[in-house]
Design a protein around this nucleic acid. Structure first.
Length: 419
RNA sequence: CGGGCUAUAGUGUAAUGGUAGCACGAGUCCUUUGGGAGGAUUUAGUCUGGGUUCGAAUCCCAGUAGCCCGACCA
């Protein structure tokens, strides 16, 4: 990945209207470009981060035994009339007619669609439990899109759906997913706490939200830092300073958080109207019991930036960084340039992801400033100085001191820094 | 959807009713090369539509867009 050929550019100053940290840094670093409020392009660097985030989610979903599919974003009205949600979700769903007058909606979520597909797949208790997920673009007519990637109108989401014969099976899987979610966030170096929240349109029972503390967050969570107990402010009766209901000595406080995941026990809310049923061992018909589990992919990218940055720019966790190393060549000297090319080729051949700042006619300061802004974990410098020692300078983005390393030792060094 | 603020060049800004200027970027040339270098030269802008006025970036009205607060949020 040569920086001279990247379809993006860093900005010296943040766009004047952006206030949130993630919007400013992602725009300045050339990760995203805003088309309109709540709708963004992922430029090459941002796209790579998003792919890393998706990769982690995918691994953990596959580990649950869930299989991946891809459902459409364009839905006919009839699919939503079956559950009454064409009407009840009018305020958040993009709905429109085509030239023939047929009505369509852009999917804000996929319970109706997946349950309808399930009727062709699930017939017997022997088919259960089963689960499937997708990573797909959702559309929500947000009255107020805001804060960069934190609240969009078009955004990618991972949605997992599970199908069960009984409550017991659902409860077990629900707990397993809860732990998988925490693992997903932990791998991205995010500390998420699970809060009890309202079931919304889905369920009278409480749902669970996964919250990460960020100043750009639009949710408020009542949190006990001592034991980690958390409630969504919507349902909490606890004021800041109240004693924690779950642990002795704990005191709760209200903190700004960003919701990165939400899981719901759906029961038969969708299976009944859509006739998703199975036969038990005695041949009797029962509605399938369902649950759905969401992770906001784009919001995660924004949240990671909110949590992992300093005054010079983004500090990407290794697991989601757009590259493992940022190779910077200084000066125009041919020998230096040739050596940098050699380093780039060697590392790339080893399978390492390297962003190579091969741009010409730029001062060292400019390149370093860009590198800090972009926030790739390791910065490699090749210059006349380093070439004199036949070595490459390595510096960690996070609190790193520069040190000279021989090319042959680089892969091991950078590799060993991986998780 | 209510309230507030804002809209000038690719980006950031100045011009308070009287010649649209500056910096960065981009182009050409020279110099420079380890933390956003210097010089010369070129390039490019008042969101849209009305109105007031001799004259509008500036004042008024409407629209559109963005941001913030609130409501909403599968």
């Amino acid at each position: 990945m040569r920086q001279s050929k990247l379809f993006s550019r860093t900005l010296k100053e943040a766009p004047k209207d952006e206030v949130s940290v993630n919007a400013q840094l992602l725009a300045r670093g050339g990760f995203i470009s805003k088309l309109m409020a709540g709708v963004h392009t992922f430029l090459p660097l941002g796209f790579r981060v998003r792919e890393k985030v998706i990769g982690i989610i995918r691994e953990e979903m596959n580990a649950l035994g869930a299989s991946e599919l891809l459902m459409p974003a364009l839905h006919p009205r009839a699919a939503w009339d079956a559950t009454g949600r064409w009407e009840s979700m009018k305020s958040v769903m993009y709905q429109f007619r085509d030239l023939q007058g047929k009505e369509y909606g852009l999917g804000p979520t996929h319970e109706e669609i997946v349950a309808a597909i399930g009727t062709h797949i699930i017939f017997s208790y022997a088919d259960l439990p089963i689960s499937t997920y997708q990573i797909q673009t959702k559309f929500r007519s947000e009255a107020r899109a805001k804060s960069g990637l934190m609240r969009g109108r078009e955004f990618s989401m991972k949605d997992l759906y599970s199908f069960h014969a009984d409550e017991q099976s659902l409860a077990e899987f629900y707990e397993v997913v809860k732990h998988a979610y925490l693992k997903v966030f932990k791998r991205m170096e995010l500390t998420a706490f699970v809060t009890e929240a309202s079931g919304g349109d889905f369920s009278k029972e409480h749902s669970h939200e996964f919250m990460v503390e960020t100043s750009a967050g639009e949710d408020e969570t009542v949190l006990c830092r001592l034991c980690g107990y958390a409630e969504n402010k919507e349902i909490s009766k606890l004021k800041s300073g109240a004693t924690c209901p779950k642990c002795p000595g704990g005191v709760v406080e209200h903190v700004a958080t960003s919701e990165v995941g939400n899981i719901f026990k759906l029961g038969t809310r969708f299976s009944e109207p859509l006739n998703l049923r199975y036969r038990d061992a005695a041949g009797a018909l029962h509605p399938v019991i369902m649950a759905s589990y969401g992770i906001g992919v784009d919001r995660l990218v924004g949240t990671i930036v909110e949590v992992h940055h300093d005054d010079r720019g983004i500090v990407w966790p290794r697991s989601v960084a757009p590259a493992a190393a940022h190779l910077v060549v200084l000066g125009e000297d041919e020998k230096v340039r040739a050596y940098a090319e050699k380093v780039y080729e060697a590392l790339t051949k080893k399978g390492m992801e390297v962003l190579f700042d091969d741009r010409h006619e730029m001062s060292a300061g400019e390149k370093f400033t860009d590198a800090d802004l972009i926030g790739i974990p390791a910065r490699l410098v090749v210059s006349e100085k380093t070439l004199a020692h036949n070595k490459v300078e390595v510096k960690e983005r996070k609190n790193g001191k520069p040190e000279l390393v021989a090319l042959k030792d680089l892969p091991a060094l950078l590799g060993s820094n991986r998780e």
